[in-house]
Write a protein that binds this DNA or RNA. Structure first.
Lengths: 144, 144
DNA sequence: TATTGTTATACTCTATAACTATA
DNA sequence: TATAGTTATAGAGTATAACAATA
C-alpha cells in the first residue's frame, strides 16, 4: 500500500501529518480552557495584529470560511463582548470588526499561553539550523 | 503580538501550520470526489494495512475519536458496503472490522490518487536531503 | 466489576440559498 | 448589476451518558 512513495518519503509524510495533528490537538485543547475554538482564536488574532478594523468578507477570505460561517462565529464572540461591529465610514454596506477592551484582555492572556505551547511542542524540539530548513521547505508546500 | 517567538521561529510555525492546513484542505477536497471524509479514509486505510480485522475500540484509539463517533462512521461505510463487521472468535462482545471486496476496490482507486497528491504538494517540493531532516524533526514533534 | 460496542440525544459548526441594503 | 453582510435552514459530525451483553 502507498507503493509509490519510498519508505523515507512515506515516513516524512506521516511525520508531517502526525506533527500537524498533534500540534492542532494540543492547541484545540488549550483554547477550550478559554472557551475558544480555533476559528474564534484566529478571528481574535487577526484583529489583534490588524491596527484598525477588518471587513467581514476580507476576514472570511483570510480564514477560508464562508461569510455565513463567519457571521455565526463573530456573533458568538460579540455575544461574549469580545468583538464589536462598527460602521464603515466609506461604505454603508460594510462592517468594520474590532476587538473590544475585553477581547484585547482575553487575547493578552491567551496569546502567551499559545506561544509557550508552540515553543514547548515545536520550537524546542527542533534544532535552530533545522528550523530554517523546515521553514523554507514548508513555505514552498504552503504555496499555491 | 506573539512576542516570545523570534521572527524566524514565528515564520517556521506559520509555515508548519500553513503547510499542514494546505495539505489537509487538498486531501479533504480530493476525498470528497470519492464521497469520503478523512475519518472514513483513515478507517479504510487502517483496515487496508492491517492483515486481519480490527476491533472498534482499538480503531477508535488509533484515530483519536470516541467509540460512538466511530460507530457512526463505520455505520456509514457499512451502509455503502465498504466494510463489514464480523464476530470475534475470542470475545463475544467484540467485533472484527474488515474491508469488503468493494472496500478494497475503492481503496485501490483512492490510494494512488492520494499518493500522487502527496507527492505533488509535499515530496516534490522538498529536496531529498531536507526531507530526511523534516522527517526526523517532525517525528520528535509528534512524540508525546 | 470492568470492558466492548451501540443507542439516544443534544449540540456545534458549516454551507447553500435567499434576502436586504447599498455601490 | 454587483457587492457586503445577514438570515433561514438543513445536514454532517461529534461527544456524553445510559444501556446491553459479555469477560
Amino acid at each position: 500500500m502507498v507503493a509509490d512513495l519510498s519508505a523515507g518519503e512515506l515516513a516524512a509524510y506521516f511525520a508531517l501529518r502526525a506533527a500537524g495533528d498533534r500540534l492542532q490537538r494540543a492547541v484545540t485543547q488549550q483554547l477550550r480552557s478559554y472557551d475558544l475554538t480555533e476559528v474564534q482564536f484566529s478571528i481574535l488574532a487577526q484583529l489583534g495584529s490588524a491596527g484598525d478594523g477588518i471587513g467581514m468578507g476580507q476576514l472570511a477570505r483570510a480564514l477560508v470560511v464562508t461569510k455565513s460561517g463567519l457571521t455565526y462565529q463573530v456573533g458568538q464572540l460579540e455575544a461574549r463582548g469580545l468583538v464589536a461591529r462598527h460602521p464603515d465610514a466609506n461604505d454603508d454596506r460594510a462592517v468594520q470588526l474590532h476587538l473590544t477592551a475585553g477581547g484585547k484582555k482575553l487575547l493578552a492572556h491567551v496569546m502567551p499561553a499559545h506561544v509557550a505551547l508552540v515553543r514547548e511542542l515545536f520550537i524546542d524540539r527542533v534544532g535552530p539550523a533545522d528550523l530554517a530548513i523546515i521553514r523554507d521547505n514548508l513555505a514552498q508546500v504552503a504555496q499555491d
